[in-house]
C-alpha cells in the first residue's frame, strides 16, 4: 500500500474492477442467505412492506403509465400518418409499450421510490444500531427484515408493471383519439389483431421480475453495507439507485436477447 502507484489509471481501473466484483459478490451472497431463509418470512412485516411499497406507489405509477402511453402514441403517430395505416396504431404503440417501455419505466420509477427508500431505511437501521438490537434479541435480521422486503419488492414490481401496462394502453388509446382521431376501438383491434399475443405481455412481466430481483438485492445490499453515520446513508442511497439503474439496463439487454 505504501509503495507509490506507478500507473494511476491502471490502478484506478483495477480498483474499480475489484469494487464491482465486491458488489456483485455481495449481492450473490445476500441472495443465497435470503433463499436459505425464504420460508421463514415474517407475515406481518411482509404485509406492512407490501402496503408501503405497492399501495403508496400507485399514484406515481399511474401518472407515469398514462403519460408514457400517450408519448408512445405520439411517436407511432408519425409513422401511422406516413403510411396512412390507422389500424396499425394499436400495434405500433402497444408492442413497444408492453415489451419494453412499460416494464422499464415502471422499474426506474419504483427503483427511485421503493429501492432508494428501502436502502435509506436499512442504512438508518444499521447506523443507529437497530440491526444489532435485533441480533441481541436473538432475531435473525435477514429472516425478519430482508426476506419480507425481498418478496415485497418482487411482488410490487410485477404487479405494478401489469397495472402500468393496462393504464399505458388506456392512455395511448385516448391520446390516439384526441390527436389522430383514431377511435379507441380501432386502437384495441390493432392491439389484439393477431400481431400481439400474451407472449409479449409475459415477456414484459418476466423482465420486470428480473429487474425486481436486481433492485431488491442492490437496495438491501447497499443498505446493510452502510458505514459512517448519517452521510453514509446518503452515499448508500445514491450508490443503490445508480447500481439498480445500471443493473436494470444491462439485464434488459440480456433478457431481450433471450426472450
Amino acid at each position: 500500500m505504501t509503495e507509490a502507484v506507478r500507473n494511476p489509471r491502471l490502478h484506478a481501473l483495477g480498483a474499480a474492477s475489484i469494487e464491482l466484483a465486491e458488489i456483485v459478490g455481495g449481492m450473490g451472497v445476500l441472495l443465497a442467505r435470503i433463499l436459505v431463509r425464504i420460508h421463514k418470512f415474517d407475515g406481518e412485516e411482509l404485509v406492512k412492506n407490501l402496503y408501503k411499497m405497492a399501495v403508496k406507489s400507485l399514484p406515481i405509477v399511474a401518472v407515469t403509465a398514462l403519460f408514457t402511453g400517450a408519448i408512445m402514441v405520439i411517436q407511432a403517430a408519425v409513422i401511422v400518418k406516413r403510411f396512412n395505416a390507422e389500424g396499425l396504431l394499436g400495434w405500433g404503440a402497444g408492442f413497444g409499450t408492453l415489451r419494453e417501455i412499460a416494464p422499464l419505466l415502471t422499474a426506474l420509477m419504483i427503483s427511485g421510490r421503493v429501492g432508494a427508500n428501502n436502502t435509506a431505511e436499512l442504512g438508518t437501521m444499521v447506523v443507529t444500531e437497530q440491526i444489532d438490537a435485533l441480533r441481541v434479541l436473538a432475531i435473525d435480521p435477514i429472516a425478519f427484515l430482508i426476506v419480507p422486503r425481498f418478496i415485497a419488492i418482487l411482488a410490487t414490481l410485477v404487479m405494478m408493471t401489469l397495472f402500468a401496462d393496462a393504464l399505458a394502453l388506456f392512455g395511448a388509446a385516448y391520446t390516439g383519439q384526441g390527436l389522430l382521431g383514431v377511435e379507441p376501438m380501432t386502437f384495441f383491434n390493432g392491439l389484439t389483431g393477431g400481431l400481439l399475443d400474451f407472449g409479449d405481455v409475459f415477456n414484459g412481466l418476466f423482465k420486470s421480475f428480473v429487474f425486481a430481483l436486481v433492485m431488491a438485492l442492490a437496495s438491501c445490499h447497499f443498505g446493510l453495507a452502510t458505514k459512517g453515520g448519517a452521510p453514509g446513508v446518503g452515499r448508500a442511497v445514491n450508490a443503490s439507485v445508480v447500481a439498480s439503474a445500471a443493473g436494470i439496463f444491462v439485464l434488459d439487454y440480456l433478457v431481450s436477447f433471450l426472450g
Partner: peptide, 28 residues
Amino acid sequence: SEGVGWATTRAVVNSSLAIIILNFFISA
C-alpha cells in the same frame, strides 16, 4: 440524516416525473 435519504428519493422520482410530463407536452 434520514431526511437527506428521503430528499434524494424524492429528487429522483420527481425529476423523472417532470421529464415524462415535459416529454408528453413537447412531443405533442
